[in-house]
Amino acid sequence: MTLRHKYSKILFTNKSEGNLPQLIIAENENLQSKFVVQKILELREQGTHLEEIAVLFRSSFLSFDLEIELAKANISFRKYGGFKFIETAHVKDMIAYLRVLENPRDVVAWNRILLLVDGVGPRSAEKIIEDILHRRADTSISDFWKDFNRYPHSVTELFELLKSISTDKFPPAEKASRIITYYHPMMKKKFDDHTKRKKDLEMFEQIAERYKDVGSFLTDLALEPPNESIADIEAVDRDDEHLTLSTIHSAKGLEWHSVFIIYALDGRFPTMYAANNVEELEEERRLMYVACTRAKENLFITYPINIYDRESGTILTKPSRFLEGLNDKLLEPWVVDEEG
């Protein structure tokens, strides 16, 4: 399919010519990371705050090696794109409790919290849910939570909790807090890293403080989830400056004084997948365009060579096809050289 028309435009500015953007080859991935770290430190010495610098990449996993090098160099960073707070299992558990309070017919949520109860497997969960739905199909929400005593003790306990917090007298944060107390022992059993996760739940309670009713809290969580798990925030001292690592998708609309685009390697950006399809390839090109136009003063595009691609069984060595053959006077070619 060809596009019937596009809106042609050529961007211009009254700002100065500025430094030429650079295209930098590194012999391997780690050399790429080390170069980026060194350049960031240099920029910082020259007066560019870490806040004003971003490293962008096509896919979230492409920054793993760099993250290790940054940690070694004691450079704080925040990463955007990839896993989100709301997608973690323990936060999803919390949400499920609140959801059955709000909508007692929400079977997915019921299933989730019943399976957490000691001694309840998929089959008994289904039975309990059926019972809940049939016996109480017509009762109003306020009557719904009364008289649950025919279940095993561990299940009754869950209902006791839900009943006790079903009243509108408690604000969402209070409800969350009581659920956390109930949930904590289960979390300890379920996850090895439960101390870290506990902090996420504290954060959850803190977010709940902002709401007057559970319904709007749930709606916001579903539609506008908070961006990051505390696991990401923890690495950063709040007063301290930090660098931004981001997928290009998450960098949409933002700008920085200096921008690095790493892994501008054909097969990674564009991805192998996209190379077979004109439409997808054009979307990758636009992604490169978006990445470049995030930069105000400095643009460094790097790529490692000698990267083995498991899926195709080939070694990737070429720069992104969107950049290959660009005039040296537009994009200066450089090679990372290791000294000493």
Partner: peptide, 23 residues
């Protein structure tokens, strides 16, 4: 079309990337 963010050198690269788009 008037850009207030980037230097002309950066815009030149961006414009060039788009220019080679496959219609």
């Amino acid at each position: 079309e008037e850009n207030y963010r980037s230097t002309q050198s950066i815009l030149n690269v961006a414009n060039e990337i788009l220019k080679r788009a496959i219609d």
